[in-house]
Every structure is written in structure tokens, then in C-alpha cells.
């Protein structure tokens, strides 16, 4: 891998970072309403109070100075005070990210794995009954809104059968004697969200993987492998799958990078106290510091992931870095 290729990508990553971070600054200057009254109605109603608040939030400085201050505070993860919680944003985000990660780490890799394996099975029986059944059902699943599917699961397994709790992360108000009890309760609450989240993911992965596999099947080297007398299973596992995984690898990295942003509709439906739910609530409460901080964290994560994707792809596929 050439240093030049990495430096080149690093340069673009930096430009992208500046662009996105500036956008995040500009968007929040365009927000409607008076942010000061959201901090405190009483204080902002008097002129002196307003001046104090403006000074506190640095709004009395010129725009460029505000931008520099913003860059400084973002890079040091000092996101200010939430309008709603009246607490430093960073304290609130920490917990929410952890909760989103619990859900995401349980569901996303599972969904990706099912999708990839399903895609391999479907494509290796291309045009046969198995393929038709798998592909058609994943197309339908691809068209099912995640939250609606989860609502049906909840109605059946949560309400009718009473097997699973219908919301939140742990039983509210429960006192856990030890960690085992807590984990057991958490796992119990995880079942339905994880199933619906992974089902939401696997449809698209299956269709992408199937398409990629079918593409590779027509390559000459597959013909060569078959002509050598390799068994079909060996052809698929040694020659087709690795090459089909190449285009999908970037999508996988990207999905993993944004795990912490949470699954919006699922978190809202299950009252799961994660990032997705927090961001939706912050929009409704017009809690700008939280929105801005979450946008920033997401931007940093996806830009980093994009850089890693480029480098990994360049490493796996020499055509990219040379061409």
C-alpha cells in the first residue's frame, strides 16, 4: 500500500470533515426560534439577563469568532449544556450511546450475517425454488417498515402470549440483587428489539450479496475453477464468496460505524433509552446543543469509517489504488 494513496485519502477526509462540521455550525445558526428563551424564559425576558446569557453562550461575539470557538469546543468534546436536561451534553450522550450499542451490537452483526449467508445460499441455487423463495421473501421483508414488524411481534409475543416485556430496557423500578439478575432482565428485554432490528437489516444485505455473487459467478476465473474439477462447494467458498464480499465489505464497515446512532424507530417504539430516541426527542424539544453534538459525533464516525473503507478497499482491491 502506497503512502501516497493513504495521504491522498487523508487529505480528502480532512476536507470532508471541515465541510461537514461547518455545515453543522451553519445549520444551527438557521434554526428558528430564540434559543435563549429555551435556556431560561425568565432570565431571557430581561435585557440584563439576555446579555448575560448571550455572553455565556458566546453569542455576543462576531460570527467568525463563534465559528472558531465552535471548532474548539467540538474537537474537545465540550458540547455545552442541554436546554432540556440542564446538564452537560457529554454526560447525557455517554449513557445513551452505551444503550444504543447494547442493542446494535446484538442486532447488526446478526442481521448482516444472516443476509450474507442467505445471499450465498440463494445465489448458489440461482433460479431454483430455494432462490425464488429466499429472494421473494427478502424483497417483501425489505418493504416492511421495521417498526410495524416490531409492533406485530409485540402484539403477538408481548401482549397475546406475554412471553416478552413490551417496552424499556430493564424492568422499571426493579431492584437487582446481582449483576446476573440484571443481565437476565436486560436479555429478556432485548429479544424482540433485536429480532426486529436484525430482520430490518438482513433483507437489503441478502439482495446485495445475491447480486454480487451472481455477478462473480459469470467471471472467467470461476469457469477456470470449475474446469479444474473443483467441487461446486469449493468453487463457491474459495472463489466466489471472497470476491463477492469485496463490494459488500464497505457497506458492512459503514453499518458497524453507525451502530451507536441507534435504530430510530425501534428505540422510539420500545422506549429504548438510546441515541436514536434521544435525537428524536431533542428535535421535538428543540434541544439544539444535543442535536448539534449528536450530528457532530455521527459525522466524525462516518467520515472516519469512510477513510477506513477507502484504505481497506484499496488494500483488498489493488485496482482502486493504482487506477
Amino acid at each position: 500500500m502506497s503512502i501516497r494513496f493513504i495521504l491522498n485519502r487523508l487529505f480528502y477526509t480532512f476536507i470532508m470533515f471541515i465541510f461537514v462540521v461547518t455545515l453543522n455550525f451553519a445549520l444551527f445558526r438557521l434554526m428558528p426560534g430564540d434559543p435563549l428563551t429555551m435556556v431560561s424564559k425568565e432570565v431571557a425576558s430581561s435585557p440584563e439577563g439576555r446579555a448575560t446569557l448571550e455572553h455565556l453562550y458566546g453569542l455576543d461575539k462576531p460570527m467568525f469568532q463563534q465559528y472558531i470557538d465552535y471548532l474548539k469546543s467540538m474537537t474537545t468534546f465540550d458540547f455545552g449544556i442541554s436546554f432540556h436536561y440542564k446538564q452537560p451534553v457529554i454526560n447525557i450522550l455517554g449513557d445513551k450511546i452505551k444503550n444504543s450499542l447494547i442493542l446494535g451490537i446484538a442486532a447488526v452483526p446478526l442481521g448482516i450475517a444472516i443476509g450474507i449467508i442467505g445471499g450465498i445460499i440463494a445465489s448458489s441455487r440461482h433460479g431454483k425454488k430455494t432462490d425464488v423463495i429466499i429472494t421473494t421473501s427478502s424483497m417483501i421483508i425489505y418493504a416492511i417498515p421495521t417498526f410495524w414488524f416490531a409492533m406485530i411481534l409485540l402484539m403477538i409475543f408481548g401482549v397475546k402470549l406475554g412471553w416478552v416485556p413490551i417496552n424499556s430496557m430493564v424492568t422499571p423500578g426493579a431492584n437487582f440483587l446481582n449483576n446476573m439478575e440484571y443481565i437476565k432482565d436486560l436479555l429478556h428485554h432485548l429479544i424482540v428489539p433485536v429480532i426486529s432490528y436484525s430482520v430490518a437489516i438482513f433483507g437489503s444485505y441478502l439482495l446485495i450479496m445475491r447480486g454480487a455473487m451472481i455477478d462473480v459467478f459469470t467471471e472467467d476465473y470461476v469457469l477456470t475453477a470449475r474446469a479444474k474439477g473443483l467441487k461446486e462447494k469449493q468453487v463457491i467458498m474459495r472463489h466466489v464468496v471472497p470476491n463477492a464480499l469485496l463490494p459488500i465489505s464497505t457497506t458492512v464497515i459503514y453499518s458497524l460505524a453507525i451502530i451507536f446512532t441507534g435504530a430510530f424507530s425501534i428505540e422510539v417504539l420500545f422506549s429504548w433509552p438510546g441515541m436514536g430516541k434521544l435525537m428524536v426527542e431533542s428535535v421535538n424539544r428543540r434541544d439544539y446543543p444535543i442535536m448539534q453534538a449528536s450530528n457532530y459525533l455521527i459525522a466524525v464516525a462516518v467520515i472516519l469509517a469512510n477513510f477506513i473503507m477507502d484504505v481497506v478497499y484499496g488494500y483488498l482491491d489493488p485496482r482502486i489504488r493504482i487506477g
Binding site: M279, M291, N295
Partner: peptide
């Protein structure tokens, strides 16, 4: 293509939520 790349990697839902407020 750089602009396209930036817009494509920003997760849609947070961006949409932000724009919907504006």
C-alpha cells in the same frame, strides 16, 4: 463526486430531523 460522497455518507435520518426543524 466529493459533494456526492459527503451527502451519501451522512446518515439520512439525523440530517432529515435537523432539516425538518429548520
Amino acid at each position: 463526486m466529493r459533494i456526492t460522497e459527503v451527502v451519501s455518507i451522512i446518515p439520512t435520518i439525523p440530517l432529515i430531523l435537523t432539516l425538518s426543524v429548520i
